[in-house]
């Protein structure tokens, strides 16, 4: 406290300048564009807005976006928890390599991720060729969209859990095992309650990205209207067709989902802080 107080008294103008700058940047860069989306979406009135978002193609895009998230999030939750568990609870050869591999979807540009999947599953691709022989198509279908979404969002839960579980140590789990608890009992009754809030935080971030992903999905979807269009792709399409009101209406839906996610995230953070304070 006293250190803070010193800074304050030594240079009040520097402090005010920094705060002002931060607020201004937030306003210009983040808040104004967000407001613009909603303002534009509603610029032709409520009725047009409702019409735009209840358009069958829009509804299909919403459904597809939610479907991709509904598959990618549980898959990556299970993956994240298992990977974090393996990395923080066991010593095995390749542990570090696994940890690096988990980060690949973060470090690779989503467009590249899309192209990678196209190479692999597209006609003439390593797996794609075999799939074609068996009359199975992955690229330019919902399956392809779900696959790349899973890829792009795979690190979120694991990344959130690994440092948290490392910091927590293994003593509580060991204590449970010594008292005769099975592996499952230890997981459900000791591990999971301990990592609960970090896990929820990871899931929320994973979900936000799953719904918002554009680049990778754009490559593998083939943009077939009413079939393989997710919300972000749909926005882009309407925009290209100069249907501004429609584009902004669809964008407002995405933005709304994002805001909702942020609210949930803040709630999770607040809960976690309160839990830590209790300890």
């Amino acid at each position: 406290m006293s250190a803070q107080h010193n800074v304050r008294s030594v240079n009040p103008w520097g402090r005010r300048l920094l705060i002002g700058l931060a607020l201004l940047m937030t306003l210009v860069v983040i808040v104004l564009p967000l407001l613009a989306v909603f303002a534009q979406a509603l610029s032709r009135g409520w009725e047009v807005y409702v019409q735009n978002i209840t358009d069958p193609e829009a509804l299909h895009a919403i459904k597809l976006t939610l479907l991709a998230a509904a598959i990618a999030v549980p898959v990556n939750t299970v993956f994240g928890v298992s990977a974090a568990w393996a990395i923080t609870r066991f010593r095995f050869p390749g542990r570090r390599i696994l940890q690096t591999f988990i980060d690949i979807p973060f470090s690779v540009s989503p467009v590249v991720a899309g192209v990678m999947y196209l190479m692999l599953y597209g006609s003439g691709g390593w797996i794609g060729g075999w799939l074609e022989q068996h009359d199975l198509q992955v690229m330019f279908t919902v399956t392809g969209i779900v696959l790349v979404t899973v890829f792009v969002t795979s690190p979120f839960v694991a990344r959130e859990l690994i440092p948290f579980m490392q910091a927590q140590g293994t003593e509580e789990e060991e204590a449970a095992r010594v008292m005769g608890a099975s592996g499952w009992q230890t997981f459900w009754r000791v591990t999971l309650p301990n990592i609960k809030w970090a896990l929820i935080y990871g899931i929320i971030l994973c979900n936000a990205r799953a719904m918002g992903e554009f680049g990778a999905v754009a490559v593998v979807s083939g943009n077939i209207r009413g079939e393989t269009n997710t919300l972000p792709l749909y926005v882009q399409q309407l925009f290209d067709e100069h249907n501004m009101a429609g584009a902004f209406a669809a964008a407002s839906l995405l933005a709304g989902l994002a805001v909702l996610t942020l609210v949930l995230k803040s709630l999770a953070e607040w809960k976690q802080r309160r839990n830590l304070a209790k300890i």
Binding site: E171, E172, E174, A175, A176, V190, P193, N194, I279
Partner: peptide
């Protein structure tokens, strides 16, 4: 355990 390892929750 040295650091008790009680279940916090």
């Amino acid at each position: 355990f040295q650091h008790y390892a009680l279940f916090k929750h």
